[in-house]
């Protein structure tokens, strides 16, 4: 049995189809990443799977329970973490945790140990008496995760849990997720950070309510047309401008301090790019052929979608 399965899951809000015929399955013990721009339908999907939003059409099962008709059974088995901070700012860390422990019916016996364990693991022990409203963004996210974890769920549904969180807290957060994974919990996570998507067992790429690609990160990367030449330089921005006008390529984008050139003939393109750069008096630290990152794929696939939709001319 799959941990999560949907068939043609659809949700409409008046004229807007937020999620359109989504069919996806997540195996038990797997971490599945839902990736896509804002408004792609990630949150709506999460909410339907958590049985807090009724689908307009299609069906879905979480641990075998129907998300339409067996809401209570679904909720007993999941832990959902909303994108917006959903805890009480005027309660302390401990009060929030205790409240959720009661809601989930966690037995008093052994509860103290479990809370201690969670607090230690998330490095939150020193703050257990602090009001949730006075925590930093990263700690708020960890508290919300703890409240969701208090009842040892079978499936976790996390909606952009690390958005806007500092890199250190993000790293802590992922450690907790990996630990859960090793304990057999299934994790379904949405994220806007593509480096996080790389860590998932499988990912789904969402765009305008539809799943446009699905598979392991390496499978998804294979969907990308062409090879990538990365040119690293402190003057990446100027090199990109220069190449855009001088070089024939599928696309030229800046990624941090490097320029990614997508091309069908990598050897030829590297040579001519190197030539153009040195002739113009700029310098590059390195020019090499690299494997596509998910962001490359994302940009290229969404770019194609948009070009074919003719809505926006981005490049």
């Amino acid at each position: 049995m799959d941990a999560i399965r949907t068939e043609g899951l659809t949700r409409r809000f008046k004229d807007l189809t937020a999620v359109n015929r989504l069919t996806v399955n997540v195996k038990r013990g797997e971490i599945f990443g839902l990736v896509g721009p804002d408004g792609a339908g990630k949150t709506t999907t999460m909410r339907m799977l958590s049985a807090i939003l009724t689908p307009t059409d299609g069906s879905g099962w979480v641990m075998g329970y129907d998300i339409r008709t067996e809401c209570a059974a679904v909720k007993d088995r999941i832990a959902y973490m909303s994108q917006q901070f959903g805890l009480y700012t005027d309660l302390t860390v401990m009060e929030n945790i205790e409240f959720y422990a009661d809601l989930y019916g966690v037995a008093k016996k052994g509860r103290r140990e479990r809370i201690d364990e969670l607090l230690n693991f998330s490095y939150m022990h020193p703050f257990k008496r602090r009001l949730a409203g006075n925590l930093s963004g990263g700690m708020k996210q960890k508290l919300q995760l703890m409240c969701a974890l208090i009842h040892t769920p079978e499936v976790m549904l996390l909606d952009e849990p690390t958005n806007g969180v500092d890199p250190v807290s993000r790293r802590d957060f992922w450690r907790i997720l990996y630990r859960l994974l090793s304990e057999g919990v299934t994790i379904f996570v949405s994220t806007a950070y593509l480096d996080e998507a790389e860590r998932c067992n499988r990912i789904g790429l969402m765009h305008e309510g539809e799943l446009i690609a699905q598979g392991t990160p390496s499978e998804v990367k294979k969907l990308m047309r062409g090879r990538i030449i990365a040119i690293t330089s402190p003057e990446a921005r100027r090199i990109a401008y220069l190449l855009k006008s001088e070089l024939e390529a599928v696309s030229i984008c800046i990624f941090g301090d490097s320029v990614h050139v997508v091309t069908d003939s990598p050897e030829k393109t590297s040579v001519s790019a190197g030539k153009i750069i040195s002739e113009s008096g700029l310098s590059a630290d390195s020019i090499r052929s690299i494997d596509a990152t998910l962001e490359d794929v994302f940009v290229s696939m969404l770019g194609e979608k948009r070009a074919s939709a003719g809505a926006e001319d981005e490049n």
């Binding site: 958590s50 807090i52 909720k75 999941i78 832990a79 901070f85 959903g86 805890l87 809601l103």
Partner: peptide, 13 residues
């Protein structure tokens, strides 16, 4: 405040 979304994801009746 958005706390309802979290609350209704629990088995509360």
């Amino acid at each position: 405040l958005g706390t309802m979304e979290q609350l209704i994801s629990t088995p509360v009746r």
